[in-house]
Design a protein around this nucleic acid. Structure first.
Length: 460
RNA sequence: GCCGGGGUCGCCUAGCCUGGUAGGGCGCCGGCCUGCUAAGCCGGUGGGGGACCACCCCGCGCGGGUUCAAAUCCCGCCCCCGGCGCCA
């Protein structure tokens, strides 16, 4: 059994360096890792040798009947222990440092990932839908489509769509971020009435579609121990995103991906039982510490939202095909809703340490004139499973690490922003996507076809 | 939260009292045997080091301690089961 990154570190460190370079990371980290690994192996050999001698002595003591000889053997053993302990301390120190360095290594960038430091280097690979483009945004739109060689059909509109934040607070008056800021802080929100129904309908829609495809429905823990959560994310994400519960070894999840990945921590999965396909639903809590002032208005970037998440444990030879399946599942959901989008192949510098490759699905936002991220689908290969110690057992009992993959299905608040912008009429009425109808129908007070602006509701 | 019982190889289980190389069953893989299958027999089936050979080290929920030697004795923690208490 071996971890792909350690194997590459020993067999082909140059290739590993290349992978770090693509991410804009310091490649000397690899030299440091090789150095520590070599030293560790050397010390391990020495310690094992002494342990072996000591074990032999111990066995001799057990058999020795002559008390005189016995006590001299015990003295000999004691002396050996002192010698051993010194080396063991060095081994422990090196081992600790080696583990720290190994765990700080990023996943190996897949050859198909575009190389570049920022999302400017993301490469759009597919477009879907007929975006509504405000007349003054046409140039902006072309920069996001034609520039990459795609001829995307669009509808020019001559009225300026209201941004989702204004829709929420002023046109529909179904959200209150000011009051939420007063009682909880910025990036929190109260949603009311129709938007709450919409939130739940979106979740049910995603759950319904994915369970129909054979994904197993899971309601996971919303908090995890440090050991579990730190095994599935990198340090930067931990610091930027994760809330800690005071006085307890518990952390709020930032996505269902975290508890779903941890579902099989320290367990073995048999080859014949893979792939394991899960669809989790949970609230997500995020500090957004690195976000600065970005998206401060509205509910696009918030500390708390609901999300339906796809998660798969897979055999290494099938994981790349499953990544395509995950993004394709997500695309089907947004096609069903009728939200125009593009799929981008995320550049090496924006992957995050766990992912070997990542697709984002970005929805067209008519008020902003930009494609914005709604979905992220990643193949993390064995980066998470190595840390979580989740192994794949082959038919002949050989062990490997499984591959893990994750993808958003629906993130409630972001999808609501896309609906508010894409399906608003000039008068402020929002048309509800038809696929959501069956998830609203059972409820007397839920909206069915449209969400009316506040002005119209007053008239009624 | 308190009291009691428990956690051993993928699964089940012995060993713990009385410290001295962790044994058996199931499952799985390979081989033998066999018209075929089954049964039977033999071997393998945790992690690491190593010319990846021989061989060696580590491993019994986690972490410490005692000892030449710990699954076994001692201390702390986690989890599971049962009872009591509390509770949406």
């Amino acid at each position: 059994m071996s971890w792909s990154i350690l194997r590459m570190l020993r067999e082909n460190p140059e290739e590993l360096k290349d992978s770090l370079r693509k991410r804009g990371m310091d490649e000397s980290l690899v030299d440091r890792a090789v150095e520590l690994d070599t030293l560790w192996r050397k010390l391990k050999r020495q310690v094992d040798e002494i342990r072996h001698i000591h074990n032999k002595l111990t066995q001799a003591i057990a058999k020795e009947r002559d008390p005189q000889k016995k006590s001299s053997l015990v003295e000999e053993a004691k002396r050996l222990i002192r010698e051993r302990e010194e080396l063991e301390k060095r081994l422990r120190d090196v081992e600790e440092e080696r583990a720290r360095v190994l765990l700080s290594l990023p996943n190996i960038v897949h050859p198909s990932v575009p190389v570049g430091p920022s999302d400017d280097y993301n490469v759009p690979i597919r477009f879907w839908g007929r975006p509504k483009v405000y007349i003054e945004h046409v140039e902006l739109f072309k920069q996001q489509t034609a520039r990459y060689g795609f001829n995307v059909e669009y509808e020019v509109i001559d009225w300026k769509p209201v941004g989702h934040a204004d829709m929420l607070e002023n046109v529909l008056r179904l959200g209150d971020t000011a009051k939420a800021a007063e009682v909880a802080g910025s990036r929190f929100y109260y949603l009311f009435d129709d938007l709450v129904w919409l939130d739940f309908a979106l979740l049910l829609y995603a759950i319904d579609r994915l369970t129909s495809k054979g994904y197993r429905l899971v309601l996971p823990p919303y908090m995890l121990r440090h050991k579990a959560i730190s095994s599935v994310i990198d340090l930067q994400t931990f610091e930027d995103a994760i809330y800690k519960v005071e006085g307890e070894d518990l952390y709020l999840i930032a996505t269902a991906e975290h508890p779903l990945a941890a579902l099989y921590m320290n367990e073995e999965l048999f080859e014949d039982d893979l792939p394991v396909k899960l669809v989790g639903v949970s609230p997500c809590f995020r500090k957004e510490a690195g976000a600065g002032n970005r998206d401060l208005k509205g509910i696009f970037r918030v500390h708390q939202f609901h999300k339906v998440e796809q998660f798969v444990f897979a055999k290494p030879e099938e994981s790349w095909q499953i990544l395509e399946e995950l993004i394709s599942n997500a695309e089907e959901l947004y096609q069903g809703l009728g939200i125009p989008y593009r799929v981008v192949n995320v550049a090496s510098g924006e992957l995050g340490l766990p992912a070997a490759k990542k697709y984002d699905l970005e929805a067209w936002m008519p008020a902003q004139g930009r494609y914005r991220e709604l979905v992220s689908a990643s193949n993390t290969t064995d980066w998470q499973s190595y840390r979580l110690n989740i192994r794949l057992v082959r038919r002949d009992m050989r062990r490997e690490f499984v591959h893990t993959l994750n993808s958003t299905a629906i993130a409630s608040t972001r999808t609501i922003t896309a609906i508010l912008e894409n399906f608003q009429e000039p008068g402020g009425t929002v048309i509800i996507p038809k696929v959501l109808r069956k998830y609203l129908e059972p409820f007397e007070k839920a909206p069915k076809e449209v969400i009316e602006p506040a002005s119209k509701r007053m008239v009624k």
